[in-house]
Write a protein that binds this DNA or RNA. Structure first.
Length: 458
RNA sequence: GGCUGGGUGGCAGAGUGGUUAUGCAGCGGUCUGCAACACCGUUUACGCCGGUUCAAUUCCGACCCCAGCCUCCA
């Protein structure tokens, strides 16, 4: 049997996934901060995680997939100097922080569904786990890894020799090149575990703690919640690559200091979607949502397919042209698969090639190339269909469900089509072409296939 | 400026020390009254300069450019 190999950012190498315990694989994925809609770049990362979890299940492991919702504490600056994004978002949206959290979390879940991204086994919200986070900070305090400033409790990163290993941080270089105010922090890489509510401003989200009224820092939620649901040391932790230098680095530091482990056996990161012009920046408010693509006439699965064409560890350049190209490809695949009829038996030869690529650190682009070779091969239709449907367990493109769109064609157009058939049977090409032009003016295109005329909306 | 990655044909994107995916577009063809659809075939490539090697796009070094983090971001 083929081994499932994955790239681990911590070791910077591809190695076999061997569960820490029995046949069980614990997977923790960093979810969104729900202060706004997610954009298509965010969604690329969740598509990667979906491919990962489908592959883990395909390889025969028992999966426990946990995803958090950050609904408090993520500041507008990772240097712990900015405002809470939730409070800022609340002012912008006119909703309370609590209402807004629910609104954007629901919107996020809807996007996942539209992209055939399977939901995690457990959703967990930071605000539902304040106790666990306080307990975690207390433990760090007892172990002498914290210090207090006027605005919060901070993690003393210099007490950990291994700090920054995940990102291969040059800590001294960071100190030298620092461009931000350190405030009362003792060192650039120190970070907030608990922030005090400001006396000047009434926060919507705040809690009592041993250190006073306030709210948890951003990083502590992941250490606390992953420990609660998956244990102190679990199999895979993933997120976007931008989390490597700060968020994940800090999670590792907290857990290492408190529990003496490095948190996860594998650290996996999805790379960015690259925009043509501007950056895919959420804070500027100018970003593409899944809905933006749908508004332009693309299906959500066309975007999923587009993401399958690039390896998760390479940047992918987004452009409308490129999305269009892949939309065309996907529709050809759908139509071909539909025309093959009922599935019969799976081709072992193609399946083997597919799995080899998939298990080699999720080489989905290669796996997709195998699908196309299969589609254009001499295999019997039933075999093609059965094999492609098996591939689709991973691709998640709903190939089995696809059927040609049913469109309403006005009687006027149908009459014209009949009139044109009449003219064609009499070889009156001039009239046939004139009628076709008339039909075009009504918004429909006629194509003469072997089975008779086909009508499509323009 | 510091650190971490990356630069492949018209576009997107795999991969490899010598046989060079895949998709879209283009071109040629089959089909068709014509067109379209579909299918078949097919051209253009590895940022720049050195080095190692029988052989480098693939390994090493310098340079240029791009991205991420250090300031909001998956």
């Amino acid at each position: 049997m083929t081994q499932l190999k994955l790239y681990d950012t911590y070791e910077r190498q591809v190695r076999e996934l061997i569960p820490l315990k029995d046949n069980d694989v614990g997977l923790y994925a960093c979810g969104p901060t729900v202060y706004n809609y997610v954009h298509i770049g965010n969604l690329r990362t969740y598509i990667f995680e979906d491919l990962l979890r489908r592959t883990i299940v395909h390889a025969g492991f028992n999966l426990k997939h946990v995803m958090n919702i950050t609904d408090v504490g993520h500041l507008t600056s990772d240097a712990d100097s900015g405002e809470d994004k939730m409070e800022v978002g609340s002012r912008r949206s006119g909703m309370s922080a609590w209402e807004m959290a629910e609104f954007y979390a629901d919107s996020f879940k809807e996007d996942l569904q539209r992209l055939n991204i399977l939901p995690p086994d457990i959703w967990c919200k930071a605000t539902d786990h304040i106790k666990e986070q306080i307990a975690f900070v207390e433990d760090l305090e007892a172990k002498n890894y914290t210090y207090k400033t006027s605005d919060g409790i901070y993690f003393d990163s210099r007490k950990l020799n291994s700090y920054g290993y995940l990102a291969r941080l040059d800590v001294e270089g960071l100190q030298a090149g620092a461009r931000v105010e350190q405030g009362e922090r003792r060192f650039v890489t120190d970070f907030a575990l608990w922030k005090f509510s400001s006396p000047d401003e009434q926060r919507q989200m705040e809690w009592e703690s041993p250190w006073g009224v306030g709210f948890p820092g951003w990083h502590i939620e992941c250490s606390a919640m992953s420990a609660r649901y998956l244990g102190d040391y679990f199999d895979i932790h993933c997120g976007g690559k931008d989390h490597i230098p700060i968020h994940h680095t800090n999670e590792i530091a907290q857990t290492e200091a408190s529990r003496g482990t490095r948190l996860a056996n594998f650290w996996m990161h999805g790379y960015f979607l690259q925009m043509e012009e501007s950056k895919m920046s959420k804070s500027s408010g100018d970003f593409l949502r899944l809905q933006s693509l749908i508004d332009e006439g693309f299906s959500s699965l066309a975007y999923r397919y587009f993401c399958l064409t690039a390896h998760y560890r390479s940047e992918l350049s987004f452009s409308w042209e490129s999305l269009k190209a892949n939309d065309t490809a996907l529709n050809r695949l759908y139509e071909a698969a539909f025309s093959w009829g009922d599935p019969t038996t799976i081709s072992e030869a193609y399946m083997t090639r597919f799995v080899e690529h998939l298990y080699e650190d999720l080489n989905v682009p290669r796996a997709l190339a195998v699908a196309w070779e299969l589609a254009r091969s001499d295999e019997p239709d039933g075999v093609k269909k059965a094999t492609l449907l098996a591939f689709d367990e991973i691709f998640g493109l709903d190939i089995a469900e696809w059927e040609p769109a049913q469109i309403d064609i006005p009687d006027e157009v149908l009459n014209l089509v009949s009139a044109r058939e009449e003219a064609r049977s009499q070889k009156d090409w001039g009239k046939a072409d004139a009628v076709r032009e008339e039909i075009r003016n009504l918004g429909f295109e006629v194509e003469d296939s072997r089975e008779g005329p086909k009508i499509k909306p323009l």
